[in-house]
Write a protein that binds this DNA or RNA. Structure first.
Length: 720
DNA sequence: CCGTACCGGTTTTTT
DNA sequence: ACCGGTACGG
């Protein structure tokens, strides 16, 4: 094949990265600099020019989506599908290893994966069995703590007690939880990685096999690796394999869940023979947007140092809108979106980004009002929904009735007369006799160890599962799913549920059947159900949203990483919200917020709007925040302020939605600078007027409570 | 045992 | 404001 097709569209830095023949390569890829392209072309280069076998290549990412995308783009570039190459997520690859070597890691062959919801339930159960007060020791916190330890590669046995009573309790829970997981043969997400690491660490022959095989390792989003993932990579690479790490320290936004930006900062130190290439030419955004992004990120101290540039033009200025409150903010965004569409653009090409999910509600309401279709990303994942998890648990019971986690979940869902007392009896017997809860139930029924009514209820449940699993062999996967939701009574239960909620749940269950219909087994010779359930455990069903409608995309800044849109709004750029108040005390966390701002800004290709609200109701209470420090870091000459705050220092050049402009307050009976009295807030001074008629608002700085924005008609102000 | 009333918690998210 | 989980009465 012709080499030029691989190098064709690459700039000098990209080409250097693609063709480097040094053992280790670190590619510092700024936002929009063609990172995935480099990764994909480097693989093609190795195969076609260096004559490397695809069989010896392993490429690892964080999300299923990224893995799919990489695989597709390689196939596309090569013009064929490469077999033998491993492309997957850290968790997916770890799962594959554990499936192949389950004996070595002391797992049952059909071990189940706990998602975080399953994990929390299990932690709760463990804590209850330890008689811990759930008020004093929130199970969520214990779960968080355990995962934190595992992400660092620490087993309960490794952890040194410091005499800290909090830690001592957490450690006790961790120990107990570990034991229960082993007994049940289940593993959580962090365990997947840790167990895979231990597989290699403790089984030199196994490690040797994979080291021999994978001579070329490529890692995407390297700045997001945690301690265990990094150790796993180092172990696999050994002394001879080559590692290509691609990442951007400025886009490290997952420190709070164990990602170690140090892995990239110290990479050259850990791998002395590393060649580092910086990709700084940006192909995405206008130079105004990049100026803003560079200015914001340059305030961080801990950086490898990069500066994005582009040879495309300046583009439009960044718009900054100061809203009265979150409703005004949302209306403004809807208004700007409408005019974007009126100019002949696609809604699909725009996104509204925010710091926290709670912000989406008001935005949704405004979009609904304006008749603008939207799609929300994030929030609850399809396969994590209550009704879906229940249905999956039935499927799991049908496949293997000794699955205690699934058993507990659905034994009394829908309600069939098996209450807490009964379940506790079953659980106790199971523990005592070291048998599954299924076996324990059978025993209880045959030996009539409980009141007749309870025995009956349990017998009905056993019979139900038996019948459903009896036909496993003959039925298609979707028929099995249909069975699971019909015969269990799940769908009937949600149909009876009143309101839109039940309706949505029924639809989700039907969608699950659809997903089963579309599912294709990786290995056609093996039973399909286990393959489906494994896949579902590692893929939260991201692609489920309907893609057919042209819609604005709403998502958090975190989930926007890796995406790009011609038009971007970042809503709520306020102190305490972004940067979030939870991140203000520690400098490291503040730097992460700043990186998040950098990620957000660099999503925009043509036009970026930043909006903030002078008053915002959050969780029922009103707060008054000033504009985010990140906005203040952006050079004034790339910003166009749509409406200035209280004190006017520059004329506004914006000429859109008229009602948003300051008005004089002529007919209100008050004037700027006038002293007023308010029944609740006390004495203050009028700073500004907004709007006309019944919706006219007034800004007042009160002596006691600071500046507030009030509806003039209802504020009942007294002139002083 | 099941349904309704209160209570607490609410940054970010993948797997 | 709102959701989900727990506590109590039917």
């Amino acid at each position: 094949m012709d080499v030029t097709s691989i190098l064709d569209k690459l700039n000098a830095a990209q080409e250097e990265a693609v063709t480097s023949d040094r053992q280790h390569l670190l590619v510092l890829a700024g936002a929009g600099s063609g990172k995935t392209r480099v990764l994909v072309h480097r693989i093609a280069w190795k195969i076609q020019v260096d004559n490397i076998s695809p069989y010896s290549i392993l490429a690892v990412t964080f999300t299923n989506k990224a893995a799919r995308e990489m695989r597709e783009r390689i196939d596309e570039l090569m013009g064929m599908s490469l077999r033998g190459m491993w492309v997957g997520t850290f968790h997916g690859l770890a799962h594959r290893l554990l499936k192949a070597h389950w004996k070595d890691v002391k797992l049952p062959e059909n071990f189940q994966i706990l998602d975080s919801d399953d994990q929390l339930r299990l932690v709760k159960r463990v804590m209850r069995s330890m008689d811990l007060d759930e008020q004093r020791w929130p199970p969520k916190q214990a779960q968080w703590w355990i995962n934190g330890q595992k992400d660092e590669g620490l087993r309960a046995a490794h952890i040194q007690e410091t005499g800290d009573p909090h830690m001592a309790t957490m450690l006790r829970i961790y120990r107990e939880y570990e034991e229960v997981c082993n007994r049940l043969g289940v593993i959580d997400f962090a365990e997947l990685l840790l167990r895979a690491l231990e597989l290699w660490r403790d089984h030199p022959a196994v490690l040797d096999h994979y080291q021999q095989r994978f001579q070329h390792i490529l890692v995407d989003e390297f700045q997001d690796t945690n301690a265990v993932q990094y150790a796993w990579l180092r172990l696999l690479a050994g002394k001879v394999s080559g590692v290509t790490a691609v990442g951007d320290d400025d886009q490290s936004i997952y420190g709070w869940r164990g990602a170690k930006v140090e892995n990239i900062l110290h990479y050259e130190r850990n791998y002395p023979d590393t060649h580092t290439v910086k990709l700084e030419q940006n192909y995405r955004s206008t130079s105004n947007i990049l100026t803003a992004a560079n200015a914001v990120i340059s305030k961080n101290a801990e950086r490898m140092g990069k500066s994005l540039w582009t040879d495309s033009g300046e583009g439009e200025p960044i718009a900054l809108y100061a809203a009265f409150n979150e409703h005004d903010e949302a209306r403004y965004i809807a208004d700007r979106l409408q005019s974007w569409v009126n100019q002949g653009n696609l809604r699909e090409d725009s996104a509204i980004l925010y710091r926290s999910n709670a912000q989406s509600r008001v935005l949704e309401a405004a979009l609904l009002q304006a008749d603008i279709p939207y799609r929300i990303y994030g929030g609850q994942r399809f396969y994590e929904r209550l009704e879906i998890k229940n249905a999956l648990s039935y499927l799991r019971m049908m496949m293997n009735c000794h699955d205690d986690v699934a058993f507990e979940r659905v034994v009394n869902v829908p309600p069939r007369g098996i209450g807490d007392r009964t379940v506790e009896t079953i659980r106790a017997l199971a523990r005592e006799d070291q048998i599954s809860m299924w076996r324990a139930s059978e025993k209880i029924v045959t030996e009539k160890r409980m009141p007749g009514r309870a025995i009956n209820a349990v017998a009905v449940f056993l019979e139900l599962i038996n019948e459903m699993s009896g036909q496993l062999e003959e039925l298609e996967l979707y028929e099995q799913a249909e069975n699971a939701i019909q015969r269990s009574g799940l769908i009937e239960m949600h149909k009876r549920e009143k309101g839109e909620r039940g309706q949505a749940r029924v639809e989700n269950l039907e969608e699950l059947v659809g997903a089963c219909r579309n599912f294709e087994a990786e290995d056609k010779d093996l039973p399909i159900l286990p393959q489906f359930l494994d896949q579902v455990a590692l893929d939260s069903g991201d692609g489920q949203a309907d893609e057919d409608q042209d819609a604005v995309q709403l998502m958090t800044l975190h989930s926007a990483k890796g995406l790009e849109f011609p038009l971007v709004f970042i809503a709520g750029v306020e102190e305490n919200l972004f940067p979030h108040k939870m991140s203000l005390d520690e400098p490291g966390r503040l730097e992460e917020e700043r990186r998040l701002a950098y990620v957000g800004i660099t999503r925009a290709m043509q036009k970026l709007y930043l909006t903030f609200a002078e008053s915002r109701s959050i969780y029922g209470t009103e707060s008054f925040n000033s504009v985010s420090r990140f906005v203040r870091d952006i050079p004034k000459d790339v910003i166009e302020e749509v409406r200035l705050q209280n004190t006017i220092s520059r004329p506004t050049s914006y000429a859109g939605s008229g009602s948003m402009h300051s008005d004089s307050g002529d007919e209100t009976g008050f004037s700027l600078g006038q002293g007023v009295n308010h029944q609740v807030y006390g004495e203050g001074v009028i700073l500004n007027f907004e709007g006309n008629g019944p919706r006219a608002r007034v800004h007042v700085r009160f002596a006691e409570v600071g500046t507030k924005i009030l509806i003039l008609a209802s504020a009942n102000l007294m002139a002083l």
